[in-house]
Amino acid sequence: MDQDRRTFLGQTGKLLILTASAAVAWEHVLAGRPEEAPNYKVSDHWWGMAIDIEKCIGCGTCVRACKTENNVPLEAFTFRTWIERYVVDPADLDHPRVESPNGGYDGFHEREVRDPSLKMFFVPKLCNHCAHSPCVQVCPVGATFESQDGVVLVDKKYCLGCRYCVQACPYGCRFIDPRTHTVDKCSLCYHRITKGLTTACCETCPTGARVLANLKDPKDPIHAFLREHKVQVLKPQMATGSKMYYNGLDGSVR
């Protein structure tokens, strides 16, 4: 083929211009639908949460707020977030007793000291919004997915209610909504965080034991939190890429 310098440069130039405009167009696609969340840019966010076990008082305000905000049924075993109390023999981390009466909805009011030698503390739990979620991997129809800003969401219109994901979640974060017979779980209050608000649980937590974090924002206090504390995620050996960073996580917690 006969190709002189002029045509070569011309073609390269066109190609470069076209690639740039395609990239700009793709950015717009990635940025989501502007009309739904006018000031929200998906590519500027990567959501996670800082949870400080040393601040949790087990009052249950987060559990109540979550059920109210997200219209979660009040019956037992349907929780998007819940609180567990660990009762641990300090020398036997393998056999903790885990209590969560009504998911901690009413708080923990038992006052007697059962055995002063036991270690007791509260652990707030919710969806870990894994970057490599086992639940997403097993969904046969693509009804649950990791959004581009790092939130594991459920497509309630598409879910079959087959329960594979309920079994796949290593953290027990999913349940079947008894009204719709489709799966439900923490959405990290996606309807709130895309409007510039924090989640209902983080909004109402009186001690600041849980704080929503945008890991892509260099000014977010999460970076100082992760730097200054010895943090751990739940079940790190499962390589789920959890983004719930716990401070003060005891070895007995599972």
């Binding site: 696609v29 990635l30 989501g32 639908r33 739904e36 969340a37 707020a65 109210t68 905000e69 997200n70 219209n71 693509g142 009804a143 649950t144 997915f145 990791e146 959004s147 581009q148 969401l153 459920v154 497509d155 309630k156 219109k157 598409y158 959405s187 996606y190 309807h191 709130r192 895309t194 409007k195 608000l197 924090t198 209902a200 909004e203 109402t204």
Partner: peptide, 25 residues
């Protein structure tokens, strides 16, 4: 379906729809 990944792109906006119950500080 498949525009953003192996899911319905509209599901992302569906998740933005529920009304606010807590107004925020």
């Amino acid at each position: 379906f498949g525009v953003l990944g192996h899911y319905r792109a509209g599901a992302v906006t569906d998740n933005m729809q529920p009304p606010l119950v807590y107004a925020g500080q």
